[in-house]
Amino acid sequence: MAIHFNDHEVKSGLKNKTRLKQYLTELFEKEGQGLSGLNYIFCTDDYLLEINKQFLNHDTYTDIVTFEMSEDPDVTEGEIYISFDRVKENAAKFDVSTEQELHRVIFHGALHLCGYKDKSKKDKELMTQKEDENIKKYFKKA
């Protein structure tokens, strides 16, 4: 099982990668989801917009696009693309640090791969609750 963090045309400044990998491994275990591999790609708005258009037929900017690559529903092999431009903008918008917003989106993608959705109001509320729990727990351990 491997978790990788990759900067593509951006510098995410992600800290404590080893600790974060361990935390993400524990998150998947806690959620009862196997994890074969996970690849985070931090990129620009324009790069993620092209992925959004090409694979999802959405012509809109977004902060994250998550792909499940595994054919086994019990074991995740995923790719998560995160727009660092959106992360910085949302951090300012929600008056949180860029580091905290980056982790929120990292956990958001992992939660999607664990089966959480965010299309309905009820699903969004649960997703936000799970993001908040993970942010609090992760930064409390720091």
Rank of each mutant, 00 (worst) to 15 (best):
K15R: 15
K15M: 13
K15G: 10
K17Q: 13
T18F: 09
L20V: 07
Q22C: 08
Q22R: 10
Y23F: 15
T25K: 10
E26P: 06
L27G: 02
E31P: 05
E31N: 13
G32A: 04
G32I: 06
Q33R: 07
G34P: 04
L35C: 04
L35Y: 00
L35D: 00
G37S: 14
G37Q: 05
L38R: 00
Y40R: 02
Y40P: 00
I41V: 11
I41Q: 00
C43D: 02
C43K: 01
D46A: 09
Y47H: 10
L48I: 05
L49A: 03
E50R: 10
I51L: 12
I51K: 07
N52S: 15
K53D: 03
Q54V: 08
Q54I: 08
Q54H: 10
F55M: 11
F55E: 10
L56S: 10
H58S: 13
T60N: 12
Y61A: 04
Y61W: 06
Y61F: 12
Y61C: 02
T62A: 11
T62Q: 06
I64L: 11
T66K: 09
F67D: 02
F67G: 04
E68P: 00
M69H: 05
M69T: 04
M69G: 02
M69Q: 10
S70D: 05
S70Q: 04
S70P: 01
